[in-house]
């Protein structure tokens, strides 16, 4: 009955009886600060290993590919927080680093020689990784939602 629900939602919207919470509006406005100038966005790519990141049932893999770079993210949800172990390959070059971002927190990591990095204790919700490469456009993964 989603169509009826749509009509009812439109009526409620017109009547102002279920207004958008202030913190949702504020988060949307703050999201503007998350844009990365000139960034290339890496789309999700299917591969045998990237199945079932649903949280709670052990780690899951997500792969993103763009601009000759592949991001493999292994995401674990435990105790209400997110851990990410990732790898960027081929190695984007000396001086590269990644920002692992949520709307509320960004953690920066230098890449190991293998292109690997790890962060722990991120809040659940939306997540994206940006790889900054000297002299080249940054590459950002699409935002993914991770919840327990």
């Amino acid at each position: 009955m989603i169509n009826d629900e749509y009509f009812l939602a439109a009526l409620r919207l017109a009547a102002g009886s279920d207004p958008i919470p202030g913190h949702v509006s504020a988060a949307a406005r703050d999201a503007f600060g998350l844009r990365v100038s000139q960034a290339v966005t890496a789309a999700p790519a299917d591969c045998a290993a990237t199945r079932g990141v649903r949280g709670g049932d052990g780690p899951g893999m997500v792969r993103f590919v763009a601009a000759g770079l592949t991001f493999d993210l292994e995401v674990t949800v435990g105790d209400g927080l997110i851990d990410v172990a990732g790898q960027v390959f081929p190695h984007p070059g000396e001086g590269s680093h990644v920002d692992v971002r949520t709307p509320h927190l960004t953690l920066t990591r230098r890449l190991a020689r293998t292109g690997q990095f790890a962060v722990t204790g991120l809040p659940p919700g939306w997540l994206s990784v940006v790889c900054h490469r000297p002299g080249l456009a940054p590459v950002q993964t699409r935002w993914v939602r991770i919840r327990p």
Partner: peptide, 20 residues
């Protein structure tokens, strides 16, 4: 917000959908 709620989401999930 109204669209997310119309899909039957609770407040937390609706906030995620809008933010997404």
């Amino acid at each position: 917000w109204a669209v997310a709620r119309a899909c039957g989401l609770n407040a937390t999930d609706a906030a995620d959908a809008v933010q997404g």
